[in-house]
Design a protein around this nucleic acid. Sequence first.
DNA 1: TTATAAATGCAACTCTATTGCATTTTATTT
DNA 2: AAATAAAATGCAATAGAGTTGCATTTATAA
Lengths: 140, 140
Amino acid sequence: MKYSELKKSLKNHKLRITDCRMDVLEYFQEHTKAVSIKDLEDKFQEYDRVTLYRTLHSFEENGLLHKIPGDSGSAVYGLCKDCDVAAHHHNHMHFRCTSCGSTECIDTPVEIKAATLPDNYEMASIDVIVNGICNQCSSN
Amino acid sequence: MKYSELKKSLKNHKLRITDCRMDVLEYFQEHTKAVSIKDLEDKFQEYDRVTLYRTLHSFEENGLLHKIPGDSGSAVYGLCKDCDVAAHHHNHMHFRCTSCGSTECIDTPVEIKAATLPDNYEMASIDVIVNGICNQCSSN
DNA sequence: TTATAAATGCAACTCTATTGCATTTTATTT
DNA sequence: AAATAAAATGCAATAGAGTTGCATTTATAA
Ligand SMILES: [Mn+2]
Ligand SMILES: [Mn+2]
Ligand SMILES: [Zn+2]
Ligand SMILES: [Zn+2]
């Protein structure tokens, strides 16, 4: 993605333009799989760990990234499609490969039927995580 | 649950009978909400933290407990219904209350239609996490 | 260009979880 | 009941993920 587009994206999400943010956003654009803080630390050794953490937080806060639930360990993040500063709104699911450990957003729309909850439970949102073997791993 | 029942349950799952395991298993039986290591540390100060961790691991390994995916922070565990040493098999969903932070297993069966995945992705299992307000919080 | 607010780097710190090893306990065999 | 082998426990040290405070630098707007 072009430099000017990245910049516009940051501005649209009310974020100041900094080297770190530009580089991290570009990195996300270039990768289909979800990204961990570890990935960023390895890739961007010129930035402090804390700055990378704060970059992820500001991106999440302002609707550029969403945190993807995982069993534990390190959190992973995926690019948002249509979220903004005001609110996140997602309806896609996530795929976690048990072979290579990668996680990715799956955009093929899935009908998630409103869950049947017991009385007095109010649903706000739903996360669906599919576990299995990803395309890359299944072809090896 | 009776002492003899707890004991039988441990034996059925190929686990040796120890004080810590008996107490922890009983604790899980008495609680409907998912339990964190923090809960156990607070409750069972007579056992070392490491022992509690190892208890959770052995229970998970042997089909007594399942780990419930969470955004991050500390892991939580729920009692298994019909799992054994050989394998876990779950088809229930989890409810996470955004007000009190609790997580619990929801047993009302939910039709989770096989997700439409892109080519060459193989699904093995699926986790559904519903976020919202739990019954206790909604009545306050 | 200057002023203000925000972002960064660094060090220290907290919290969660794991590992190694000596000791104790459990289950099994005699 | 006593001896044995295997497993569980406690303790200390270590590792890893993430956060906080503060001085310095940078981005934006006046
Ligand atoms: Mn996603
Ligand atoms: Mn459950
Ligand atoms: Zn894979
Ligand atoms: Zn609640």
